[in-house]
Design a protein around this nucleic acid. Structure first.
Lengths: 319, 319
DNA sequence: CGTCATGGGTTAAACGTTTAACCATTGTCA
DNA sequence: TGACAATGGTTAAACGTTTAACCCATGACG
């Protein structure tokens, strides 16, 4: 690895000058500039972020702590986070904590060792960050008191669903409301009730996970108590529900309509194609990085809470 | 941020002793050890990886360069890579190059600036790594001459498909063979021909991408030239094909059977549920890290080529 | 009783940068 | 002509670690 001093020696200047050329921090005569640059190029110089950070106190690195990359919700936001960060000159160190709060704690320690300038955190559940974090944090999707946060407008999304279900003429619905520990599930549910209004009868309303695994109670309701339409906590729940019903011989969406939430990439390809509400994945990622960089530049100040609009995506499953 | 010298001052010992305690590099009397440890805990000490790397020359960090995180193939391997690396004490810096060779080149530069100890590289296409990389590289899924590489046994997978199609009694097939620039597509195709044998008539055989976008030519064949069974280059191609046919009113799998490759997470949920060959995602990720660490420990030596077994996954789409 | 190994420390240099403080030369202007 | 600013550079310290080299008791041994 070539260093700044090798360049300096070869170009017969001081390391300070090399640094000034490479970073344009101080004016340098055109000829030395040219000389230094050519030597640097010739030697294939690549600056050491470590050494630089050590001196400057800024690592030009941000940490991303996510609960589970195999959850189809995340890759798109991670991708955008990575790209946006890189555009701004930041590297990304990433930790996937497998939905385990203990690993999440370890994650904070790990990114701490990297002295990251900021952290983008998609919390596993509604917990505080264990150790008061050493760098600014912005949460995505799951707000935490006292921290900056970005979420989609789950409530408006819920409302959209309610209205669509009502206008589609479904008289009775079953609700798979998701984990009540999740802000998004609660907001969606709240919006949903608003959207449904009084015209629609809620026959059952049971909690679920956000995953493909449906609890006993939920399965019993789905198969046992007929309704015109089932509203899933998210697309995965809805998809599993559809599968369950299809296996039981129900015709979808004619016997039962189904709606999801998120518009994960394959909502379009399941059977029946899923009506759902699209979260703005890319905007979430981008906004998170931008807010984080603002906060890094301006560490004090009221935490911001950004809520991004969602979009109805009508497909066959609503009937 | 507390430093080793703050601890030293407070415990009235030298920084060397603190270092020796924390890293167990040299024996230290029990009482000083205890003292130092308690002070460190009290001060919430977290070592600076930067400073450490600067001195030791090892960063305890590996770089992951992937073509596109939204491709459902990758998250599972990325997740395993991250976890395995972390178990071994390595951090992961990740770059998503959006299938763009130019970004891929930039990715190598970025991870270079972090002085990573090794690189896991899922190449965008069949290219050489632009600059002779400064750290060991192991490729995943797409072998590169002269580098260590892990792949699935695409050829055996292709053969499985061929045999299953033949045994299912399909007399004519159409093949969507994927991009010929990809090792995996070529191997699958080769295996497929072996598996089909002489009994099955190949009516058409056209190249495609690996994505959901089907070229004109492919679409024309799919809709225009009837066959008993269509073999897709991967699950995404197969899923799109199914969608196209269903939209055209064909009954699946009765009119046309369909097979994919990969077993991406939602192959199970599309209509009809997709018969396919499962790649060992987690083993790919784990094996990649392990091979990389071996190579880091033992930089010279013949490049290894590891091929992992795949598994047939029979679902309704084969008929 | 000298010699020597050993255990438990310390000192100081080094890793690759950045940056404040300094210096020398030249040109400008009163 | 002398003071002074501007320009273009250098010196050296510092960031937080690790680690080789050294030091000093103490106890063992011939």
């Amino acid at each position: 690895m070539t260093t700044i001093s090798q360049i300096a020696r070869r170009a017969r200047v001081s390391t300070a000058t090399v640094s000034n050329v490479l970073n344009r921090t101080k004016p340098v005569s055109p000829q030395t500039r040219e000389l230094v640059e050519s030597v640097a190029r010739e030697l294939g110089y690549s600056p050491s972020r470590f050494a630089r950070s050590l001196k400057t106190g800024r690592s030009a690195t941000i940490g991303l702590i996510a609960p589970d990359l195999t959850n189809p919700f995340f890759p798109a936001v991670v991708q955008t986070v990575e790209r946006t960060a890189r555009e701004r000159g930041y590297g990304l160190i990433i930790v996937d904590c497998h939905n385990d709060p203990a690993e999440e704690k370890a994650a904070f320690e790990l990114v701490g060792e990297y002295r990251v300038d900021g952290i983008i955190w998609i919390p596993v559940a509604e917990t505080k960050p264990e150790p008061a974090p050493l760098a600014p944090v912005v949460t995505v999707d799951r707000p935490v008191a006292g921290l900056d946060g970005i979420t989609s407008d789950h409530r408006a999304g819920g409302r959209m669903i309610g209205e669509r279900v009502r206008r589609a003429g479904h008289g009775t619905v079953g609700i798979l409301r998701g984990p009540s520990a999740h802000h998004s599930a609660r907001e969606r549910h709240r919006g949903l009730l608003e959207g449904l209004g009084d015209g629609v009868r809620i026959v059952w309303d049971v909690p679920t996970d956000f995953s493909l695994d449906l609890a006993e109670e939920a399965q019993a309701k789905i198969l046992g108590t007929a309704v015109d339409c089932i509203v899933g906590a998210n697309d995965q729940v809805a998809i599993r529900t559809a599968q369950l019903l299809a296996a039981a011989g129900r015709a979808l969406p004619d016997d039962v309509a189904i709606v999801g939430f998120d518009d994960i990439p394959w909502a379009e390809f399941v059977h029946p194609p899923l009506s759902t509400v699209r979260q703005p994945y890319r905007r979430l990622g981008r906004a998170a990085v931008e807010l984080l960089l603002r906060r890094i530049a301006e560490p004090d100040g009221e935490p911001e809470r950004i809520v991004l609009p969602v979009e109805w995506v009508g497909r066959a499953s609503l009937g």
